[in-house]
Write a protein that binds this DNA or RNA. Structure first.
Lengths: 230, 230
DNA sequence: GCAAAAGTGTTGTACTTACACCCATGG
DNA sequence: CCATGGGTGTAAGTACAACACTTTTGC
């Protein structure tokens, strides 16, 4: 009778779809692929895959992320579940979307070729299959809120970063220009960054100092009741 | 081959769980029930139910809401999907949580008796089954953000409301006291409420004026690029 | 020596906070 | 007439927005 209660109900395919964000050449990009199966074969699509018996939702998403990036411990957050009846032309599928922040420079191109994957500027997205455009929109809104209130944007960088690069990143996420002095003032007031001796001389002759995010200082900062804000 | 791609994958039970918020006696409450089936029978639980073939996620949630409240057109928002492997002791179930804002005074008690349902103060929740406590926490955080940036709190009222009641509502949602004059100043500046002639004389001898939310004015307000904030 | 990006402070404005007294009425 | 909750304004402090010039260095 116990089993009956559970088993007399309908079951569904569940997919995890990943909005993989990367920051490259001063642009916020999403990793897209050409859908490998019918229907909509060869149309632009997010990275996705079905969830299996033995895994949690989070594990299913991590599986997809690893398949397409070969990276582990990627920062990831759930966007939500998408369950309209006809959302997937191939059958009844409930998708749970996750966004992930990856270091686009760590990304290797042979992998990209294998999966027919491309980094595409968020502002210039093509029409994607099913409701994937809505997923990206929702993910971007969530990301905007998140980076403004928590220090997660640093996951886009390989530990160190320059202030001009950080500002460019925030500008592309917010899709608006920011005032250089005001931006730096806020960072200065929070006092969460460590300035390195080293400079990045790629983007300018003068060179910009590298910084790192100080996690211990951030924990104290939270304990003191302060709030991250950018 | 097309069908094979879809059908060779695992399928799952999907449940919709509803965090039904209501405002009653100046307290923010959640409608809870005694779980009617094993396992965990008779433990406190959110209102939930399985999703069926012919319905969308939203429709599944609306079905649950209607079953327990007999109301339609309830304001509802998705909180997220919960997919840990052992989250439900009765079997593998993926739950999608929704919160809903209902007018607790419209609620009839015979219905409550039928389903063994009770309104319980959010600050005094008992231990709920599975991960339902986490769902309520997540829903409450979302609700706090939502009512601070969008005029959704008005759904708790049956169209008209007094300013003292509105303030009490915000105080219980935020779980902090607010300054009466500052609260009213913000409302005044946004100019989105219409003052009625009528007074509520139940809560005081002098009586407090009723107000209604003016939706047309709010649309203009948005068109002018303004943002709701409380 | 000049082009190109990095770095640096001040001032006015808008918003947020803190705060205390009178009013209306039912009992 | 008094107890109870409803209603009102101002001043100080804080956060935000706007703004322009000097520095460094590779070419």
């Amino acid at each position: 009778m116990l089993q009956a209660y559970y088993d007399n109900n309908d079951k569904f395919l569940i997919a995890a779809d990943c909005i993989i964000f990367g920051f490259h050449n001063n642009e916020l990009k999403v990793l897209l692929t050409r859908r490998p199966v019918e229907p909509m074969k060869n149309e632009w699509s997010l990275m996705g895959g079905f969830m299996e018996e033995g895994e949690s939702l989070v594990q299913a998403a991590e599986k997809i992320l690893f398949r397409y990036t070969q990276q582990k411990n990627i920062y990831m957050e759930q966007v939500g579940a998408y369950g309209e009846i006809d959302r997937d032309a191939g059958g009844r599928v409930i998708s749970v979307a996750f966004y992930a922040l990856v270091q686009a420079d760590k990304f290797n191109t042979s992998l990209a070729n294998k999966f027919d994957a491309k980094w595409i500027n968020v502002k210039k997205l093509p029409k994607l299959v099913f409701d994937h455009n809505k997923m990206v929109d929702d993910a971007l809104k969530l990301l905007q809120y998140k980076v403004s209130t928590q220090p997660v944007a640093f996951h886009f960088f390989n530990d160190k970063f320059t202030l001009p690069a950080l500002q460019e990143l925030y500008e592309t996420i917010y899709q608006m220009p920011l005032d250089k002095r005001n931006f730096r003032k806020k960072l200065n007031n929070m006092d969460l960054l460590d300035k390195l001796e080293e400079k990045d001389k790629v983007n300018s002759k003068r060179g910009a100092f590298y910084y790192t995010f100080n996690m211990e200082r951030y924990k104290q900062f939270l304990d003191e009741g302060k709030r991250f804000s950018l």
